[in-house]
Nucleic acid binder design. Structure first.
Length: 841
RNA sequence: GCGAAAGUGGCGGAACUGGCAGACGCGCCGGACUUAGGAUCCGGUAGCCGUAAGGCUUUGGGGGUUCGACUCCCCCCUUUCGCACCA
């Protein structure tokens, strides 16, 4: 008897997969395709189990789909540009490229040792010119379509990373990567016009029925659509969603950044300027999150409310945001909490103009929830008596006719700032010519290669500007003297379309051949962390549409099904190098093997949930695999031979029929758990049950001495009944095949041991036979007044009348019926599950 | 503050559309085998009462709908996550 030695087996099959190119695929219109993808990896150095959990999840799905006959694309690559590489260069002098490529090599080895079934020939790294030239290509396409543009703007600046951040990358006022407090700077920046797609991204979310609601909600909130109106108060345009309250607009509030405010500050001098400076000095994020007290000052100016005809004062308020809407709002203190507080503080008048539909005019001195709600207009001239919704429509229309306003839709989403003042990224392919101005690089000159830099200082300006050979280049249009753009692209550009490139990763005339994406796209199953819910996942949806509009694909949405996998915690905390609590998969593989590691991570919790790492749990999974190993090993001689007929139910005894039933029940359950449910943990427990059943069966039929450990010589008994051999063979083979997505190395080894040459994919997924799974008997619980009082064992096809009779006669039940009157008997359920419920008084 | 999800044994977690709560595993306890067992195999393991048969209680708390509720409805508590002055 051979021991279970994962190390040897795993090496053997990994070599086999590599040598036979087992997971490489080409388009095959004759077979259904399945594109299975995990978010590609940032090559940070070493992958810990938290990282690789995601790849294991995807691998189980990919392997299972392959066995079910799908042509499965399962590629992997590297999100290889980015700051850590550059920081490593500044700190240790290693070139970012060296650092990145070394890390990729190490991590690739880790993934291969885990046995993830990737089509490695499609591997890509975004830091190679072969990849990033297409970033530049699509950038120029976007420029041509006015989807990329440059403007000076106030931007988020991370002092830790020394670069600009997109709004999506600012989390609670801090840098998403390094946690530094984000400040603002005024810079010339490149933007992608994602706002042009705001409505489409919002509408498209409705089609994403296989995405977690949580992610869709986050995206909807991020896009933040609100319908309202822009209204002119003389020269000041405000945005409001509550034009129905405009008769109550007792003042106008301007953001400190508002252009008029800046102008007046110059004109009015010191006092004005001092107050303004104070607001601007207030921490930007504190102001935005409402931690700073609401305050403001009177500009001394007034405008006419175009509906009341009355003059209203103009104030500057620190809580009004310059970047949202028009940077100006109408203050309606009676119907807005913030305006109310403001009015109280500065003794401004409060005029109620909405009353509840079923109530009186509210007390203007109080602010309630009801005051903010819709109602019926009062004190609103000709509009009195109209409900809010009708009033909004009418007021908006009247404003339009009077040419003092219009209905509009406002988004929270802003254009995506992609300029980064760093080295390790895609050069932005434009030049600035002394005579022609800004000129994009010619397509035939792509890629604009990132020059080799030798010194990394970490200074806060674009490193590329320090390389004259890069900066100075001829103008693509006139050939004259020009200077290259020295900013690089946000690395989120790289990750916004890599899943399309995987369909055709070596194409050197286009980002990808449209036909390949037409075949493989969209990604059928995509898994990764929730932390990308709004960054990567919204950018990718945007880019897919851009590629569509450029004519390379017909896809609207890139990812059909999204699974957001939970994190792996150790000691209650996220694993991180700095906390010193990382679990290295290689260490675990050394101890228990890759199969046990995979099985444990899949079994311990549903994929979406976070898990707490325990070594004991891993050991348990190892024990299970060893148990399977012993079972198959000891039976392989008996059931592995040729010429064993399929089990025919007529010749089977009760135990044999029982095992067959369990086998097919398990096939049904595990299949559904994997596809479509992706409840990987319960699929594993189903397999464990089957193994327990097999042991019990072997014990009873004395197939072999199951009590022997793997260090003992087995005493294989002679199995006399052909039926026993047949049902064991069926059960064990189904077990091995269904186990193979989880523990692929061991499954291949056992499959071979069982006398099969072609491997588990060729064998296919086991088929479920409903007839066999059907039980001849069933247990029916009996309740009396809602309490379980007995169980009946009856024929599966027992009639309701029979059940009723048996239930009443059952000793345990009868005891509770004594001296009572039966009011009602309910017999419910069907198929394999029925119940008798008796009501007595 | 707003929004969403979730609260089940000592622990991780099961329970598909309302139908035997606690599958499966970890841990623990016991038995077998054994010089030995931290290997293996078998059994037990929600709590309380009882030698037992059995009974009572139990899915965060309280109410409700139902023959029947972890599951549906209402109120409350807690946790996690997201948004956070968006006019």
């Amino acid at each position: 008897m051979a021991d279970y030695k994962p190390r040897t087996i795993e090496k053997k099959w990994q070599d086999h997969w590599r040598d036979t190119r087992a997971f490489e695929v080409t388009e095959d219109p004759a077979r259904p395709k399945f594109y299975c993808l995990e978010m590609f990896a940032y090559p940070s150095g070493h992958a810990h189990v938290g990282h690789v959990r995601n790849y294991m999840i995807g691998d189980v799905v990919a392997r299972m789909k392959r066995m079910r006959g799908f042509n499965v694309l399962h590629p992997f690559g590297w999100d290889a540009f980015g700051l850590p590489a550059e920081n490593a260069a500044i700190k240790h002098g290693t070139h970012p490229e060296t650092w990145t490529l070394d890390n990729i090599e190490h991590m690739k080895g880790q993934l291969q040792r885990i046995g993830i079934s990737y089509a490695w020939e499609r591997e890509l790294a975004t830091c190679t010119p072969e990849y990033y030239r297409w970033n530049q290509w699509i950038f120029i396409k976007m420029l041509e379509r006015d989807l990329a543009y440059k403007r000076r703007s106030s931007v988020n600046w991370c002092p830790g990373c020394n670069t600009v951040l997109a709004n999506e990358q600012v989390v609670n006022g801090e840098c998403w990567r390094c946690g530094s407090a984000v400040s603002t700077r005024d810079l010339e920046q490149w933007f992608f016009r994602i706002t042009k797609y705001a409505d489409e991204l919002l509408a498209g979310a409705k089609t994403l029925t296989e995405w977690p609601d949580k992610v869709l909600t986050m995206q909807r909130n991020w896009i933040g659509r609100s319908e309202g109106a822009r209204v002119h108060f003389d020269g000041i345009e405000v945005f409001t969603t509550r034009i129905d309250t405009i008769y109550g607009a007792n003042f106008i509030l301007l953001a400190p950044e508002h252009a008029l405010v800046q102008e007046w500050a110059k004109a009015d001098g010191a006092a004005f300027d001092a107050s303004l400076k104070r607001f601007q000095g207030q921490d930007r994020t504190a102001r935005m999150t409402g931690e700073v007290e609401k305050e403001g000052f009177d500009t001394g100016r007034t405008v006419i409310n175009p509906f009341t005809g009355q003059p209203v004062p103009i104030w500057v308020a620190n809580f009004v945001l310059g970047e949202y809407g028009t940077g100006a709002v109408m203050g309606v203190p009676a119907h807005d909490q913030r305006d109310f507080e403001f009015a109280r503080k500065y003794n401004l008048p409060v005029t109620a103009v909405i009353r509840p539909a079923d109530g009186d005019i509210p007390d203007a001195a109080a602010m309630t929830e009801a005051a903010e709600a819709d109602g019926v207009l009062v004190n609103s001239g000709a509009y009195d008596g109209l409900p809010s919704d009708q009033a909004r429509a009418k007021l908006t229309e009247d404003a339009r006719q009077r040419q003092i306003g219009e209905g509009t839709i406002q988004y929270r989403l802003k254009d995506w700032g992609i300029s980064r003042q760093r080295y390790w990224g895609t050069p932005i392919p434009v030049l600035y010519c002394d005579t022609c101005g800004m000129v994009p690089e010619k397509y035939e000159n792509l890629p604009v290669e990132l020059p080799r830099m030798t010194e990394f200082t970490g200074r806060g300006d674009s490193p590329l500007a320090q390389i004259p050979e890069f900066v100075n280049a001829p103008c693509p249009r006139c050939g004259g003297t020009a200077r290259r753009e020295t900013d690089t692209m946000d690395t989120f550009v790289d990750s916004s379309w890599y899943f399309l490139r995987f369909c055709d990763p070596h194409n050197d005339t286009l980002p990808f051949d449209p036909a390949t994406v037409a075949y493989w796209g969209p990604v059928d199953f995509y898994s990764g962390g929730v932390e990308h819910a709004i960054l990567h996942l919204i950018y990718s949806r945007f880019f897919t549409r851009v590629f569509r509009d450029v004519g390379l694909t017909t896809l609207d949405e890139p990812f059909t099904r999204l699974l957001t996998q939970g994190m792996v915690l150790k000691d209650g905390q996220v694993m991180s190098k700095s906390k010193g609590n990382v679990v290295d998969p290689d260490d675990m593989i050394d101890k228990f093997g890759a199969d046990a590691l995979r099985l444990y991570v899949m079994f311990v919790a549903p994929p979406e949930k976070e898990i707490e790492w325990t070594d004991a749990g891993l050991e348990g999974s190892w024990r299970f695999l060893a148990r399977v190993w012993r079972l198959v090993d000891q039976l392989s001689e008996t059931i592995g031979g040729a010429g064993i007929p399929a089990p025919a139910s007529g010749e089977l005894n009760d135990d044999e029929r029982g095992l067959r039933r369990k086998t097919h029940e398990t096939i049904r359950r595990v299949t559904l758990d994997l596809d479509p449910r992706v409840h990987l943990n319960t699929a594993v427990s189903g397999l464990m049950e089957l193994v327990n059943e097999l042991y019990a069966f072997c014990n009873k039929s004395q197939c072999f001495d199951v009590g022997r450990g793997q260090d003992d010589v087995a005493s294989v008994g002679v199995i006399e009944r052909p039926g026993t051999v047949a049902v064991l063979k069926e059960a064990v083979e189904a077990l091995v095949l269904m186990l193979s997505p989880f523990a692929p190395h061991m499954a291949e080894e056992l499959w071979e041991k069982l006398g099969h040459a072609g491997g588990v994919v060729a064998a296919g997924w086991p088929a479920f036979d409903a007839e066999v799974a059907k039980a001849s008997e069933m247990t029916v619980p009996v309740q009396v007044n809602g309490k379980l009082r007995g169980r009946l064992t009856v024929a599966a096809d027992a009639s309701d009348d029979q059940l009723r009779e048996l239930a009443v006669a059952d000793a345990g039940v009868a005891k509770h019926l004594e001296g009572k009157t039966i009011r009602k008997v309910v017999i419910a359920g069907g198929g394999g599950s029925r119940i008798v419920s008796i009501v007595v008084t």
